[in-house]
Amino acid sequence: MAEYRQTEEGFRRLIAFSDAVVAIALTLLVLPLAEIPGEIRDSTSIGAVLRDHQPALVSFAVSFVVIWVLWRNHHRMMENFRAYDRTLFELHFLWLLTIVVLPFATALMDNIHIERANAVYIGVLAVSVLSLVAMTEWGARHPALLDDNADTGVWIAQRTGLASCVLLAVALAIAIAFPKVGVWPLVLLFFSGPLEQLLRRLRRAR
Results as ranks from 00 to 15, higher is better:
Phe81Trp: 04
Asp52Glu: 15
Arg86Asp: 04
Glu35Met: 09
Ser43Tyr: 09
Thr27Val: 08
Leu91Asn: 01
Val66Ala: 14
Arg82Ile: 10
Thr27Arg: 07
Ala48His: 14
Val58Arg: 08
Arg86Gln: 11
Phe64Ser: 00
Ala23Met: 02
Glu35Asp: 14
Asp85Val: 03
Arg41Gly: 01
Ser59Gly: 11
Ala105Leu: 05
Phe64Glu: 02
Leu88Asp: 04
Leu33Val: 08
Arg76Ile: 11
Pro32Val: 07
Ser43His: 13
Thr98Tyr: 02
Phe89Tyr: 11
Pro103Ala: 12
Glu39His: 11
Ile24Ser: 08
Phe81Cys: 09
Glu35Leu: 13
His53Tyr: 15
Asn73Lys: 06
Leu94Lys: 03
Thr98Ile: 04
Val58Pro: 02
Thr106Leu: 04
Asn80Ala: 15
His75Pro: 04
Leu31Cys: 07
Arg86Gly: 01
Val69His: 03
Pro32Lys: 08
Phe64Lys: 02
Val101His: 00
Ile36Gln: 03
Asp52Tyr: 04
Leu33Cys: 08
Phe89Val: 03
Val66His: 01
Leu96Ser: 10
Leu70Asn: 06
Thr106Asp: 02
Gln54Trp: 13
Ser43Gly: 15
Leu33Arg: 10
Leu26Gln: 02
Val62Ser: 08
Val22Phe: 05
Glu79Cys: 11
Leu50Gln: 08
Asn73Met: 13
Ile99Ser: 07
Arg86Ile: 08
Leu97Asn: 08
Arg51Tyr: 14
Leu28Glu: 03
Leu31Ile: 15
Ile99Glu: 08
Tyr84Ala: 13
Phe81His: 06
Thr27Met: 03
Met78Gln: 13
Ser59Ala: 14
Ile67Glu: 02
Pro32Phe: 09
Leu33Thr: 07
Phe64Cys: 03
Met77Arg: 01
Gly38Gln: 11
Asp52Thr: 11
Asn80Gly: 13
Ala23Ile: 01
Glu39Trp: 02
Phe104Asp: 00
Phe104Pro: 00
Ile99Gln: 14
Pro32Ala: 09
Ile24Met: 07
Val69Trp: 10
His53Glu: 07
Ala83Gln: 13
Ala34His: 01
Phe104Tyr: 10
Pro32Met: 13
Ala61Trp: 00
His75Leu: 09
Leu31Tyr: 07
Phe60Ile: 05
Leu26Ser: 06
Thr87Ile: 15
Leu57Asp: 05
Glu35Gly: 01
Val49Ser: 03
Thr27Asn: 10
Leu50Arg: 13
Trp95Thr: 14
Val22Asn: 00
Phe104Trp: 09
Leu26Pro: 04
Val58Cys: 05
Asn73His: 10
Leu97Cys: 09
Ala107Tyr: 00
Val49Arg: 04
Tyr84Gln: 04
His74Gln: 14
Glu79Thr: 13
Ala48Arg: 14
His74Ala: 05
Thr27Cys: 13
Leu50Ala: 13
Ile99Tyr: 07
Arg86Thr: 04
Val62Glu: 08
Ile40Asp: 05
Ser63Ile: 01
Glu79Ile: 12
Leu88Thr: 10
Tyr84Ser: 13
Thr27Pro: 02
Val69Arg: 05
Glu90Val: 15
Val62Ala: 14
His75Trp: 14
Ile40Lys: 05
Pro32Arg: 06
Leu96His: 09
Asp52Phe: 04
Leu94Thr: 08
Asn73Gly: 15
Ala61Ile: 03
Leu29Lys: 01
Asn80Glu: 14
Ser63Trp: 03
Leu29Tyr: 01
Ile67Lys: 04
Ile99Arg: 00
